[in-house]
Simulated assay, not measured.
Amino acid sequence: MADVFINGRFLTQPISGVQRYAQEIVTALDGLAGEGALPARYVLLTPPGARRLDLAQIETRVVGTRAGHLWDQLDFARVARAGTALCLAMTGPIALKRQVVVIHDASVQRHPEHFSKPYVLAHTLLDRLLARRAVIATVSEFSRAELADVLPVAERDIVVAPNGAEHLSIAPDAQVVERLGLTKGGYFLTLGNLTRNKNLAVALRALGRLAPGSAKLVAVGRMERSVFGSAGLPEPGPDVLLPGRLDDAEVAGLMQGARALIFPSIYEGFGIPPLEAFVNDCPVLASTAPAVREVCGPAADYFEPHDDATLATLMQMLLDDHDGAIRRDRLAKGRERVARYSWRGSARILADACAKFGA
Score class of each variant (00 low, 15 high):
182 L>F: 00
41 R>Y: 09
137 A>L: 05
90 M>E: 15
154 A>T: 15
93 P>A: 07
323 D>F: 04
6 I>F: 14
198 K>S: 08
114 H>F: 07
63 V>T: 15
227 V>L: 14
349 I>E: 08
353 A>L: 10
354 C>A: 04
340 R>T: 07
115 F>W: 13
251 V>A: 04
216 K>P: 06
132 R>C: 08
193 N>H: 13
165 A>D: 04
124 T>W: 06
116 S>P: 13
322 H>W: 02
162 P>W: 03
16 S>K: 07
325 A>T: 03
191 L>Q: 06
276 E>W: 00
110 R>D: 09
23 Q>E: 12
5 F>V: 10
194 L>R: 13
323 D>P: 02
341 Y>K: 15
179 R>H: 14
252 A>D: 04
112 P>Q: 07
8 G>E: 11
238 P>S: 12
252 A>R: 04
138 T>E: 07
293 R>M: 12
20 R>W: 09
64 G>N: 14
125 L>Q: 12
273 P>I: 00
299 A>F: 00
291 A>R: 01
274 P>Q: 00
274 P>W: 00
258 A>L: 08
86 L>G: 14
267 Y>M: 06
225 R>M: 15
333 K>P: 12
66 R>I: 04
84 T>I: 03
15 I>N: 12
324 G>S: 13
282 C>H: 05
307 D>S: 06
334 G>N: 03
4 V>D: 08
348 R>D: 14
61 R>P: 05
189 L>Q: 03
79 V>N: 12
307 D>W: 10
7 N>K: 07
69 H>R: 11
130 L>V: 11
221 G>V: 03
49 G>R: 11
317 M>P: 07
232 G>P: 02
118 P>A: 05
75 D>Y: 07
60 T>S: 13
314 L>I: 12
294 E>L: 02
191 L>T: 06
348 R>I: 05
144 R>G: 10
339 A>L: 06
344 R>P: 07
188 F>R: 03
102 V>T: 05
141 E>M: 08
24 E>R: 15
